[in-house]
Design a binder for these strands. Structure first.
Lengths: 146, 146
DNA sequence: GTTCCTGCAAAGAGTTTGCACGAAA
DNA sequence: TTTCGTGCAAACTCTTTGCAGGAAC
């Protein structure tokens, strides 16, 4: 099955039509390790052969978010949304204060803690978000060399 | 010492001038248990006797943030900033999906986890942010009664 | 042929900024 | 008296929306 065919199946699978714009955005998100802003995506799109309006980017991202293909988030004190392919895996990020990269972290201490809190406070926890701020190993190294 | 005097001392303590606008904003933030948007603050201000422009609210909040009196954050997929008095205590919030309240939680499982990650991944963690999403005990109760 | 996606342009929300006046030290 | 904080209006950034034409099925 060709890559495009695979993505077509993903789109129809969640009950939405195929279009080359949606296909491209899905492909870009599939290949990105880290969350992207609408603008970053838009710039990547301009480098590709398919052109597209910014409002289309937003509409497609909104649609993908509603269909669960993508997650939308605001991080720290930045007032731009970050969009990321929802791979149904539980992960968080270390946001490097120097190079601004988002380094994924797959372990999580909150499962257990959540269940403990639910009992103690009589609440229901549905999901959670964790952001770690600090320095990635590359930047830590450079800092020590300097 | 009168409350206003106390706040005056806080302002001059971080090296900024006193003004009745800054005093009022500081007072409102001091008395709020949860993070507030600039607009919410602005509405609360209009209810008080002192009037103030929205841009002043933003300028004062920015200044307070730079001086460390206040923390600024974006939560979930909401594109409005939340400002909160920085009380130098470590806490997180349960954000209720029903009533949208922020319920503070003072325990945190990330201290230990952070140290573990630092060693394992050779990184430096400076700070972190945790958001829990779910239902507060009030809304949980109501849901069960319905 | 019908449905609904997209481009374009305009509007909307949240936030920031330049400038002149006014208040704090 | 000098410094700097504030009001006002305008600008700016990110995002959303209405409408008409065009693509997907």
């Amino acid at each position: 099955m060709k890559p495009t065919e695979e993505r077509k199946k993903i789109l129809t699978g969640v009950g939405i039509k195929y279009s080359k714009q949606r296909d491209l955005i899905l492909e870009l998100l599939n290949h990105s390790e880290m969350p992207l802003t609408a603008e970053t995506l838009y710039i990547q799109i301009q480098a590709a052969e398919i052109s597209m309006n910014l409002s289309t980017v937003y509409r497609v991202l909104d649609l993908f978010t509603m269909k669960g293909l993508v997650t939308k988030n605001y991080i720290g004190d930045m007032n731009k949304a970050l969009y990321e392919r929802n791979r149904m895996e539980h992960k968080h990020y270390l946001i490097c204060l120097k190079c601004k990269r988002n380094i994924p972290i797959y372990e999580c201490p909150l499962e257990k803690f959540g269940r403990y809190l639910e009992e103690k406070m009589n609440i229901d926890i549905v999901s959670h978000k964790v952001e770690l701020y600090g320095y990635c190993s590359d930047c830590k190294q450079k800092q020590m060399e300097a």
